[in-house]
Nucleic acid binder design. Structure first.
Lengths: 202, 202
DNA sequence: TCTGAAACTGACCAATTGGTCAAACCATCC
DNA sequence: GGATGGTTTGACCAATTGGTCAGTTTCAGA
């Protein structure tokens, strides 16, 4: 991916990626079409392909960097901080990602459901390494008696599952809570804080 | 959906649905093709359409009944039983569904990611009603001091999120745990029991 | 064994798909 | 104003899509 040179390239690349995120996150890679993306972007199909070499290239541009955004909150967990506070902070940041970037979350979920054909390497490399590293920190905190002892990797899984659920299953969440209740996130935040506090406080 | 009459109809309908589950759960509705399903089923495409009127019809046949299977474990939660035991039982049954029917879980997840166009009515009706009913039971248990007080609907969400994660994000789970570790489910079961026990015991 | 219905197929169709290309457009700088 | 290079598009293509249909094969029961 070379950086856009001109102002027009900058603007149109962004417009295309924005439209593609909308379409890919809803229909997955195979289910999305260039015509749909072009229509959402308000550009002609050949014009899309002037900026990106192929459908694959657009999808790839979206995925690359997504894992980074996804892992940043975990990276930010400070080994020298207060254990419970650090983990609650991680949960809060992850939930904010679900609230503010639900389409990115769904794009990621789609990739997982398909067996992660395009990012499996990153999962087994970068992701795995970071989880191992942070698990060691969690384990140390548990050994020191500053955190209740639970399986650290599954603990991280639980943070992912509980936070991403509010983005990926947004329709279901809102259907169950009823249309009136507008925003499920404040209550979700309070619930998750109680959950992890009770789980982790020694 | 009329019941299959002959033995051949019985067998081929099942073969088709089995193949369709495989394909739909991986690629979603739009991403799946009849040719793929036909190939997996080992039947010709016109033959598929001899048994099902359309691609939609196959997908619909899979979805209908899925919600039932999905809700049964929640229905089985006994209002007269022991609160913590009942909820842990629900978690266990739901996790077993994830382990034994991961493709069904992914089919459901795909539908959610697309905004649940085909089952929204059921979500806002049947699903919502059952959740409301069981939430009332949970709330009563909390009022009686037999369960720690948390938001009951979000508690149910947390069961869904934590259990379905192991089916829907299976690739990620296994990538992080490393290929050697074969089956994540036993450890997941123990982790979830600890989690919900600590969260809910008064 | 015969017969009628059920099961199956190759050939086909119109629409949609990702992608190409030559030609046109447009902004800027000399 | 003309030259130049980035930008845009209509027309087009081969492949794939969901679906049809006329006809053939297979099967169960009399």
């Amino acid at each position: 991916m070379t950086r856009p040179r001109t102002r027009i390239q900058q603007r149109n690349s962004e417009t295309i990626l924005e439209a593609a995120l909308e379409v890919f996150s809803q229909h997955g890679f195979r289910g999305a079409t260039l015509d749909q993306i072009a229509e959402v972007a308000g550009l002609s199909k050949p014009n899309l392909l002037y900026y990106f070499a192929s459908k694959e290239a657009i999808h790839g541009a979206l995925l690359s960097g997504l894992l980074e955004t996804w892992l940043d909150p975990l990276r930010a967990m400070d080994p020298d901080g207060d254990p419970v506070a650090e983990l609650l902070g991680y949960v809060r940041r992850k939930l904010e990602l679900s609230r503010d970037f639900p389409r990115e979350s769904r794009l990621f979920a789609n990739e997982m459901l398909q067996g992660a054909p395009r990012i499996r390497a990153a999962l087994e490399g970068e992701l795995r390494d970071l989880v191992q590293e942070k698990s060691a920190v969690l384990q140390r905190w548990m050994d020191e008696g500053r955190l209740a002892p639970v399986h650290p990797v599954h603990l991280i899984f639980s943070v992912w599952a509980l936070t991403q659920h509010y983005a990926d299953f947004d329709v279901q969440v809102r259907a169950v809570l009823g249309g009136a209740k507008a925003d499920p996130f404040p209550e979700a935040g309070r619930f998750l804080e109680v959950l992890f506090r009770r789980l982790l406080e020694p």
